[in-house]
Write a protein that binds this DNA or RNA. Structure first.
Length: 425
RNA sequence: GGAUGGGUGGCCGAGUGGUUUAAGGCAGCGGUCUUGAAAACCGCCGUGGGUGCAAGCUCACCGUGAGUUCGAAUCUCACCCCAUCCGCCA
C-alpha cells in the first residue's frame, strides 16, 4: 500500500514509478479522489464540532431547567447535512483504499528497466556445471526409471501437477528440507517457525496476494486460504504490532508445503515436478529497521545461495527488471540453478525487499528510540530454498550414466549414510 | 455442532446516557537525590485524520457496521474475532 502523503507531495515521481512497471499514471485520479474526500471529511468534522458544542449547551440548559428548543432545532437541521458529508467521506475513502490496495509496489531506483524477463540482468555465475560423458536425463525420466517417482499414481489420486515420491527420493526430499532448516537456523540466525498453512484473507491482504490474485489461491469452504508460500504467515507474525526497536531485526524461517492453483499457467512445465499445485519450500522472512533493509536483502540472498554452495550446485544470480517483479517487491534477486537435463538455469529462489509496502498493509510498526512518532517496518522474504526444485537439481546434477544418483556429501547424514540412490532403493 | 463469557491506549485495567479532556497501574522518556546504581519523589507519555511555517486549533477512534438519542465506550440489532466448557476427532 502506498503512502498518500508521498503521492500528494510528489505525484510525478509516483507516476514515473508506475511507468517503470508498465502502468498508466494514476496520481491525477488518486489526488482528485483524495481532495474530494478531504473536503467531505472537513465538512463532516466542522458539522460535528458545532453539534457537540450545541449538545453540551443543551445539557447545561436542561440541567438548569431552561428551554433548549432553539438549540435542539439547530442540531436537527444539521443532521441531514452531516449524514451527507459522512456518506461522501466514507464512499470516497473506500474508493481510494480500493485503488491504493490494487497498485503494486514501486521499483527501487537501481532496478534495471525492462518490460519482461528478457530485461533481467545477470549479476554473477557461481560454481561449475558438471561435465557428463553421457546424455543427461531430466529429473522425471530419472525418477520414473528409478521407480521412485510416480506421476500416474498422483494423477489417479489428485489429478495433474501432483507427484508421489517413494523410498530414497521421498527421504531425499525430507533430507533437503531438514538440511536447509538446520543451515538457516544454525548458521544464519533464523528462528524456526511452524506456522499455520491455512490463513485468513486478512493475512493475504497484508502480504499482497489479495485482493488482486485470488485466482492463484486455493480456498476452503470455511473461507480459509491455503498458503502459496510461508511468506504469508511468517510476515504476518508482526501484523498489527507496534514493536520495540531493540527486538529488530527479526528473522524467521519455516518449512511448509505451498499451494498454488497455477491458474493461467496452462501448458507451462506440464511435465515433471517443476510446477506443482503442492510443493515444499523453506522460506526466509526478515523484519527490519528501514535503514537496514537493503543490507538485509543482500544478506538474505547470501543465505539462500549458501544452500546451493554447500550442495555443490552451479547457479547464477539475476536481478529482476522493473517489468518482471512481483506485486509487493521494490527489488528482487532471483537465484537460478543449473539443470543438466534441461540444459538451462531454472529459478530456485526469489529474494525480495518489499520496503514498507507490506508493513503498511499489515499495520506493522516500531517505535524508534528517542522518537515520538512510530514508523513502519521493512519486510523481506526469500526462498531458502524451494525444496521440490532443489530435489530436481540434485537428481539431475548428481545423476550417473547408469541412472543412479550420488547423494551429495552434506546430505548423507540426513540419509542414514546412504551414498547412492539406485533403482527401487 | 451445542453452551457460556469476553473484546477499552505498547501492556494490565476502571468506566451502565451529559466537566470523560477515557481514571488508575505497569512499561517507557526527562528530572531531583546519589560516588554510581537501585529505591523514593516530581514531571511527560495513546493512534490516526484535517488545518497551519510552527506553536497550536480541531475531529475521529473503546472489535466492525448499522440504529436509538439533542448527546453513546455506556442502550438496541447484526456481524467478526478471542477464550472456556460439552460433544466429535488426529
Amino acid at each position: 500500500m502506498h503512502d498518500i502523503k508521498l503521492i500528494r507531495d510528489n505525484p510525478a515521481l509516483f507516476d514515473a514509478g508506475l511507468q517503470k512497471r508498465g502502468l498508466a499514471p494514476l496520481s491525477a485520479q488518486i489526488l482528485d479522489l483524495d481532495q474530494r474526500r478531504r473536503a467531505a471529511q472537513t465538512g463532516f468534522q466542522e458539522g460535528q464540532a458545532r453539534r457537540n458544542e450545541a449538545s453540551k449547551q443543551i445539557g447545561m440548559v436542561k440541567k438548569q431547567g431552561g428551554d433548549a428548543d432553539a438549540l435542539m432545532a439547530e442540531v436537527a437541521a444539521l443532521k441531514d447535512k452531516l449524514a451527507e458529508f459522512e456518506a461522501a467521506d466514507k464512499a470516497l475513502g473506500e474508493e481510494l483504499e480500493a485503488i491504493l490496495m490494487g497498485i503494486p509496489n514501486l521499483p527501487a531506483d537501481d532496478v534495471p528497466p525492462g518490460e519482461d524477463e528478457s530485461g533481467n540482468v545477470e549479476l554473477r555465475k557461481v560454481g561449475t556445471p558438471p561435465v557428463l560423458d553421457f546424455t543427461p536425463l531430466e529429473h522425471d525420466a530419472l525418477g520414473e526409471k528409478l521407480g521412485l517417482m510416480d506421476f500416474a499414481a498422483a494423477a489417479r489420486i489428485s489429478g495433474s501437477r501432483f507427484v508421489v515420491l517413494k523410498g530414497a527420493l521421498a527421504r531425499l526430499e525430507r533430507a533437503l528440507g531438514a538440511f536447509m532448516l538446520d543451515l538457516q537456523t544454525g548458521q544464519h540466525g533464523y528462528t524456526e517457525v511452524n506456522p499455520p498453512v491455512l490463513v485468513r484473507d486478512t493475512a493475504l491482504l497484508g502480504t499482497g496476494q489479495l485482493p488482486k490474485f485470488e485466482e492463484d489461491l486455493f480456498k476452503t469452504e470455511t473461507g480459509h486460504y491455503l498458503i502459496p508460500t510461508a511468506e504469508v504467515p511468517l510476515t504476518n507474525l508482526v501484523n498489527g504490532e507496534l514493536l520495540d526497536e531493540a527486538v529488530l531485526p527479526l528473522r524467521f524461517t519455516a518449512l511448509t508445503p505451498c499451494f498454488r492453483s497455477e491458474a493461467g499457467s496452462a501448458g507451462k512445465d506440464t511435465r515433471g515436478m517443476i510446477r506443482q499445485h503442492q510443493f515444499p519450500k523453506v522460506e526466509l522472512v526478515s523484519i527490519v529497521h528501514p535503514d537496514k533493509s537493503d543490507e538485509e536483502h543482500l544478506r538474505m540472498t547470501n543465505c539462500a545461495e549458501d544452500v546451493l554452495k554447500k550442495l555443490g550446485l552451479a547457479y547464477r544470480v539475476i536481478v529482476l527488471c522493473t517489468g518482471d517483479m512481483g506485486f509487493g517487491a521494490r527489488k528482487t534477486y532471483d537465484i537460478e540453478v543449473w539443470l543438466p537435463g534441461q540444459n538451462t538455469y531454472r529459478e530456485i529462489s526469489s529474494c525480495s525487499n518489499t520496503g514498507d509496502f507490506q508493513a503498511r498493509r499489515m499495520n506493522a510498526r516500531f517505535r524508534p528510540k528517542e522518537e515520538k512518532a512510530t514508523r513502519f517496518l521493512h519486510t523481506l522474504n526469500g526462498s531458502g530454498l524451494a525444496v521440490g526444485r532443489t530435489l530436481i537439481a540434485v537428481m539431475e546434477n548428481y545423476q550417473q550414466a547408469d541412472g543412479s544418483i550420488v547423494v551429495p556429501e552434506m546430505l548423507r547424514p540426513y540419509m542414514g549414510g546412504l551414498e547412492r540412490i539406485t533403482a527401487n532403493g
